[in-house]
């Protein structure tokens, strides 16, 4: 059983950190094999960026996503650049940040969350990545929520753990709701 997850957005949104957290949750706390790789350019802020996480109960030879089973995008550029890859897969799960992405011409089913708006309302726009990660876990179950929460605690700056937990819960509960509504 193998999941191939893509997180896309622009530099500064914490896409790479979210990918790392997911990979770590799977590898260390869910005891799966998990590779995390990233595409990035010279920009520390702005520019399209992508995190790729491959999760398997066997060994992973090829550490990159070939056939994405789930994809979360947080920028229009990432949507345009990466979503065509979903055509290779049967019933892929696409998730968008509804305020940042207009899924023009995308005819298949997709899930949406206002991750950035929720984060802003929580007072910290830069936790949108964690809201999105929570939503992704709620919708896809590619990693256990407990493992991801533990991984978040390991990865985020000291003192921000509780805020990040709330951000995760916000996204996660909306994800569960979205699945129920489906």
């Amino acid at each position: 059983m193998e999941s191939q997850v893509v997180l896309g957005g622009f530099g500064g949104q914490g896409i790479i950190l979210a990918g790392f957290i997911l990979g770590q949750a799977s590898a260390i706390y869910d005891h799966q094999s998990a590779t995390f790789t990233q595409d990035y350019g010279p920009e520390a802020r702005g520019g399209a960026c992508r995190a790729q996480v491959v999760i398997s109960d066997g060994t992973i030879s090829y550490p990159y996503v070939q056939n994405p089973t789930a994809m979360a995008v947080m920028s229009q550029e990432a949507f345009t650049k990466y979503t065509p890859e979903l055509a290779r897969v049967k019933n892929p799960i696409l998730i968008i940040d509804e305020d940042l992405v207009k899924p023009a011409n995308y005819t298949a089913k997709y899930y949406k969350i206002a991750a950035t708006r929720i984060a802003r309302e929580m007072g910290r726009p830069n936790i949108a990545n964690i809201v999105m990660l929570g939503f992704l876990i709620g919708v896809t179950g590619v990693a256990s929520a407990e493992s991801v929460k533990q991984s978040i605690r390991d990865a985020v700056p000291k003192g921000t753990e509780e805020l990040n937990m709330r951000a995760f819960e916000q996204g996660y509960s909306q994800g569960i709701e979205a699945i129920k509504a489906n």
């Binding site: 790392f20 990979g23 770590q24 590898a27 260390i28 094999s33 998990a34 590779t35 995390f36 790789t37 990233q38 550490p63």
Partner: peptide, 9 residues
């Protein structure tokens, strides 16, 4: 670069 920047257990 690929091995340097890839994360794994």
């Amino acid at each position: 670069e690929a091995v340097g920047h890839m994360s794994e257990k």
